[in-house]
Design a protein around this nucleic acid. Structure first.
Length: 211
DNA sequence: CTTTGGATCGTCT
DNA sequence: GACGATCCAAAGG
């Protein structure tokens, strides 16, 4: 649909029947892990999209993080093992999805902010009647959850297990020269940290101030 | 094009 | 009792 990529570089190697994680190390700091998630595919049932925009959130060191003031009922899954899904409700009506990272017990996560829709486009459009064009389907954290059908019921699932209702699928990593680094959106503290990462020129990236 | 305000309610102070 | 890790429509230039 656009001058995207020179074709997938990863050989299709469907994970064995058992739980067979791949070699994506999510145990590092959120700011280091975040750009690595660009290019991976988020899957839920027949719907799937390539991650094109993310934001890193730390723990006690990050005033903008839900985990800044410690563990609560809401952020409990942020304290789980890397690769867990953390879903929370935003502004009382939207759902937002995160990939938990860092070693288990130390809360940090990467908010998935935008997807390039790949499979199940018709189902996404059905779930998001407001979106007239494909670029409006998953161009925002709340939008992509609505399009994918991700809700609080999915909180805590293991994204690295291909049998999970919601999971990650290996994709080609995005070369550093194609990664745009900026400040996070919608927060009021630690505004200066450039912890937002996006695939340059991708039309599915959400709207947000540059910097 | 940019800016503004309403919706809406769980979570934490 | 206040405030959001947002989205959308409507109004203004």
């Amino acid at each position: 649909m656009n001058a995207e990529a020179p074709a997938p570089t990863w050989v299709a190697a469907p994970p064995p029947a058992s739980t067979a994680p791949w070699e994506l190390d999510l145990s590092g700091d959120a700011a280091d892990v975040a750009p690595l998630l660009l290019g991976q595919t988020l899957v839920r049932g027949g719907r799937a999209g390539r991650i094109v925009e993310v934001e890193a959130y730390g723990g006690a060191d990050d005033p903008a993080s839900h985990a800044y003031r410690g563990r609560t009922e809401r952020n409990a899954s942020m304290f789980g093992p890397p690769g867990s899904l953390y879903v929370y409700r935003s502004y009382g009506l939207h759902w937002c999805a995160n990939v938990v990272c860092g070693p288990e017990g130390s809360p940090s996560a990467v908010l998935v902010r935008a997807l390039s829709p790949r499979r199940g486009l018709s189902a996404m459009h059905r779930a998001r009647p407001r979106a007239v064009v494909d670029t409006g389907l998953c161009s925002g954290p709340g939008k992509l959850c609505q399009a994918m059908g991700i809700t609080g019921a999915d909180d805590g699932v293991d994204l690295l297990n291909p049998r999970s209702r919601v999971h990650l699928e290996p994709g080609p990593s995005v070369p550093a020269c194609d990664v745009l680094t900026t400040t996070r959106v919608g927060i009021s503290r630690a505004v200066e940290r450039r912890w937002r990462f996006a695939v340059a020129h991708d039309p599915h990236v959400s709207r947000g101030r540059p910097a």
